[in-house]
Simulated assay, not measured.
Amino acid sequence: MPRSGRLVVTGYPHHVIQRGHNKQPVFLEDEDYSYYLSSLKDWRCEYGVKLYAYCLMTNHIHLLLEPSTSEGLGLLMKRLAGRQTRYFNAKYLRNGTLWDGRYKSSVVDSDAYLFNCARYIELNPVRAGIVPTPQDYRWSSFNEHIGNSHFSNVCDTLSGLSDPENYEAYVSEGIGDDELSFIRSSVNRNQLTGSASFISKIERITSIRVEHRGRGRPRKK
């Protein structure tokens, strides 16, 4: 049976997750993280994809991407995955796949959930107990967003919370259990991250029936 295509809506953010095969590491050394970020920085421009947030964990990645074409997101993810696999296999003398099948993605309501998803992504290493604060984690976009000059400029600006102090305070508020569950469930099920009205709007734009289900309430900016 052919696999169904993912929902891609140009001009809207997409929360993307890709995991290592059998939850195995896809990054082992600093060089591995840097290599992936370098590819991401170059190729997102080539494929016309904006990058609002990222977090590279040991065995999976989170990206918040906005494609300008219907093909751009898939092409970018395919190329990133293939190049990292070839690099990783050559460096660590291994064979086979690096990633656990296709990536998962969720179209995000940019008005209500863009900043919520960015915060969710950048707090991943804190929730995992790797670091006490997002500032302490090197491989996420948080330090870029708060204006830390020691980190390379990979991301586009999160307009609306562009003041570094405002953004730092916003992320420091943390994320509630309902919001956490909703964002996590949406991307893992390849469903929309947004309200019923947003779901209806996307259905009108795409002429595709989208499953309606319970949803959380975004926290105020």
Rank of each mutant, 00 (worst) to 15 (best):
Q18P: 02
N22Q: 08
N59S: 05
K41P: 01
L64E: 06
I17W: 09
A81C: 12
K78W: 04
L80P: 13
V49R: 12
N59L: 04
A81Y: 00
C55G: 13
H62L: 14
T69I: 00
S70H: 10
L75R: 15
E31V: 05
R86V: 05
S34I: 08
D42R: 15
E71F: 08
P25M: 12
S34F: 13
S38T: 14
N22K: 08
C45G: 01
G82C: 06
P67G: 01
F88N: 09
P67F: 00
E29K: 09
D30P: 07
Y36D: 04
T85W: 01
L28I: 15
L73I: 04
R86E: 09
F88V: 13
H21E: 08
D30G: 15
G72F: 09
N59T: 06
C55W: 08
Q24F: 06
L80N: 04
Q18W: 15
D32I: 03
N22F: 00
G72Y: 02
Y36C: 00
F27R: 02
G74N: 14
F88P: 11
V26Q: 05
Y52M: 07
K41R: 07
E31Q: 07
E46T: 10
D42A: 14
R19S: 13
L37G: 09
G74W: 05
M77D: 02
W43H: 15
R19A: 14
L73H: 03
F27S: 01
L73M: 09
G82F: 04
Q84W: 08
A53C: 07
L40F: 02
R79H: 06
L80G: 10
S39E: 12
F27D: 03
L75H: 09
V49N: 14
L51P: 02
S70K: 10
R79F: 03
R44F: 14
H21T: 09
P25L: 06
C45Y: 00
H60G: 00
C55N: 14
S70Q: 11
E46D: 12
R83C: 00
H21S: 12
L28M: 13
A81H: 11
L56K: 03
H60T: 00
P25H: 10
T58E: 12
L80H: 06
L64P: 07
D30W: 06
L28W: 01
T58M: 08
E31C: 01
D32L: 07
L28N: 05
S38Q: 14
L40Q: 03
F88A: 12
R44Y: 12
N22S: 06
Q18I: 15
L51Y: 00
Y33N: 08
L40K: 02
A53W: 06
L28E: 13
S39K: 13
K78V: 00
E31G: 11
D42Q: 15
W43F: 15
L56G: 04
S68A: 12
L73K: 12
S38M: 09
